Computed example of a mutant assay.
Amino acid sequence: MTITQLHYVLAVAEYKNFTLAAEKCFVTQPTLSMQIQKLEEELDVQIFDRGKKPIQLTDVGQQIVTQARSIVNESNRIKDIVDQQKGYIGGDFKIGIIPTVMPTLLPMFITNFTNKYPKVNLIIEERTTEEIIKMLKSGQLDAAIAATPLSEESIKEVVLYYEPFVAYIPENNPAFGKKEFSVKDLEDNLNNILLLQDGHCFRNNVLNICKAASLPQHNRFHLESGSFETMVKLADEGLGMTLLPYLHTLDMSEKAKSKLRHFTEPRPSREVSLIYSKKELKLHLIDALRTTITGVVRGAIAFHNVEITSPLHK
């Protein structure tokens, strides 16, 4: 049994296709198939059910993949230990970012980071908070950027910034005349709020501000969208108001900004953190990323008197 064979098994388990797995591993398909077959013969079990399309893991294959992932991750730590000792900042670094942070934060730091650390191969994936937690625990991600606190015992959270919520109120809305918005105003307009679909922690943030289990069903339509732009356009069509994260409002037009209302202090806000497994060894890379992000965000958010809401649905 070799580490290389385990790499091949993990690739087929991920892509459910021998040809695609071989391409991702930079080997020929016959080579990859032969090595997996050798492993199956050595173990005297079938890891994959090749009769199904796409290829599926057998029951024992599921257990083998779980153990293989742990073995491969631990083997990678040997190089991480050496890099840490030498202070080398380079190599692959996989990070996940939640969808409501990715569009605004990534453009702010990616160029600075890649220019400063050209030897780092930054691999970025947009993932939900639930996916991120699973991938950090399984070693599929080195770090992630998500709304916190998450209350996960095995995950370390390092706060990057606090981002206030901002109300977007169109001119045809009765609340447009308000200069500032309060949590009470938000609670009074629960049946008038457009929010992202279920599964987004930003939605849970807003519900937790209102201390509401859910929003009333809109009497004219049912909406499921993961886009702030969609929420803004629907609000402009007179279908309600919406809430936006502060960084998302910076590039809006002056006309759109005239419809924004900040909350009274303490401003309801979300905590955005760099998170990683407590077993993670690429701490030098994590610190480099943290330093870069805090450096560019510090000048963009000047709010101090904030009240943090949890991304976990209460």
Rank of each mutant, 00 (worst) to 15 (best):
F18H: 02
E126V: 11
L39F: 10
Q67R: 02
I110M: 13
I55R: 01
R50P: 01
I123N: 06
L43I: 10
F93T: 02
V12Q: 09
K86F: 01
P103D: 05
S70Y: 00
P30R: 08
F18N: 06
K79P: 04
P54H: 06
L106G: 10
M34K: 13
I123P: 01
Q56R: 08
T100N: 15
P103T: 11
L106S: 14
K116L: 04
S70H: 03
P107F: 05
S70D: 05
N115R: 15
V12N: 11
D44I: 02
K24F: 03
G87L: 02
S75D: 06
E74F: 02
I71D: 13
L57V: 05
F26H: 13
Q46T: 01
I36A: 06
F26E: 10
M108S: 13
L32K: 09
N115I: 15
I124A: 08
K38L: 11
E74G: 00
P30E: 10
V65W: 03
M108Y: 12
T28Y: 05
N115E: 15
V27T: 09
S33D: 03
Q29S: 12
I110S: 14
V120C: 08
G61I: 07
T104Q: 15
M102H: 13
K52N: 12
I64L: 12
I47E: 11
G51K: 12
T28C: 08
F93Y: 03
V72A: 01
I97R: 13
D44F: 09
V101N: 11
I81P: 02
F18P: 00
P54T: 12
D44G: 04
K79F: 07
L57I: 10
G87V: 00
E14Q: 14
T100L: 05
P99D: 06
K79Q: 07
F26P: 00
Q56I: 01
R77P: 04
D83G: 07
V120G: 08
I64A: 04
Y88E: 03
D59Y: 10
D80M: 11
